[in-house]
């Protein structure tokens, strides 16, 4: 409803203002705490802030330093490896489980919650469980040795070159069930009569999935990609709980980098600039997605 005529009665006038008034506190909170804060952080990233915010303008110096830091290099590389593997493996496992579950499986109602429950856990809990499970001295390796498989060797969590893959493993464990649920919903939404028609046309099961069903899951793929990539970039808790960024700096990611530079190393300017880079990455992924979603709706 647009603006009322000038001679509108009181009730009509009131009704055009009340909704806006109701929305305004939320909007104000958002403007200050999200957009205002983003501006403030961006501003700080151009200052010489150390332990506390200070307002000496240093231009791009922080970014310059940031990109020269080996520590940041490691964090970015780790994030790329982590995000790529996390998204791909979650999608593959999620799609596979969804397709399998969609074959009129007996006990689906038991299996589905089992696949999904890790999503209800905190990353800290997940980290605690996997940290120990993967600990060679006491977890899986130790148990295998006790069972007589002496040559079994699995110490990735202690190994600089492989530790990041344990983060992937734990993260996949936590999120793949969720991707499964998204794909399953997509599969259940596909018109069964169309599949029957395709079978009449002589399509095999594989062709059915490859040519007809999976292409129609495009929206689910897109949603999964967006959500997983955003979880990956924000990942902080899991790394802290599982490896603490170690061994050494082997599993540092931008989220842990930002936290340690800002709050423990007192390099707030650099910390702020790293958070700006993180935001820009998310913006590059989210804005086109949200734009297309919202435009479609109207």
């Amino acid at each position: 409803m647009a603006t009322p005529a000038a001679d509108a009665d009181f009730k009509t006038k009131l009704q055009t203002w009340v909704p806006k008034l109701v929305l305004s506190p939320s909007l104000a909170l958002m403007l200050v705490f999200v957009y205002g804060f983003i501006l403030f952080s961006v501003y700080l990233s151009f200052t010489d802030s150390r332990i506390l915010p200070s307002y000496g303008w240093v231009g791009f110096e922080n970014y310059d330093k940031l990109f020269r830091l080996r520590h940041w290099d490691i964090a970015v590389n780790n994030l790329i490896v982590f995000a790529a593997l996390y998204i791909i493996i979650c999608s593959v496992i999620g799609l596979m489980l969804a397709i399998f579950l969609d074959q009129k499986i007996r006990g689906e109602s038991v299996l589905r919650p089992i696949f999904l429950y890790p999503m209800a856990l905190s990353f800290i809990v997940t980290g605690t469980a996997w940290k120990w499970f993967l600990d060679p001295g006491i977890g899986l390796e130790h148990t295998m040795h006790l069972w007589g498989w002496e040559s079994f060797h699995f110490d990735w969590i202690k190994n600089r070159d492989y530790a990041i893959y344990t983060v992937v493993l734990a993260a996949v464990w936590q999120s793949s069930g969720f991707v499964m649920a998204m794909f399953l919903a997509g599969l259940r939404g596909i018109d069964n009569e169309m599949l029957k028609a395709a079978q009449m046309d002589g399509a095999t099961n594989f062709q059915l999935y490859h040519r007809i069903i999976i292409p129609q899951l495009r929206p689910a793929f897109l949603s999964a990609f967006v959500i997983l990539s955003h979880l990956a970039i924000k990942s902080y808790d899991l790394v802290v709980a599982l490896t603490g960024g170690g061994p050494g700096r082997a599993t540092e990611v931008p989220a842990t980098f930002m936290y340690s530079y800002t709050f423990t190393r007192n390099q707030m300017g650099i910390g702020a600039s790293s958070s700006v880079i993180m935001l820009m990455t998310i913006v590059a992924i989210m804005v086109p997605y949200l734009y297309s979603e919202l435009r479609e709706k109207n």
Partner: peptide, 27 residues
């Protein structure tokens, strides 16, 4: 109770779900 720019406002609210929270920690 739709009004002009309501989708835009919603878009702003929705985007806030997805920001990396590191960007708001200091402020």
């Amino acid at each position: 109770w739709r009004f002009k720019y309501d989708t835009l406002i919603f878009g702003f609210m929705l985007f806030a779900c997805f920001i990396p929270f590191q960007i708001v920690l200091i402020p």
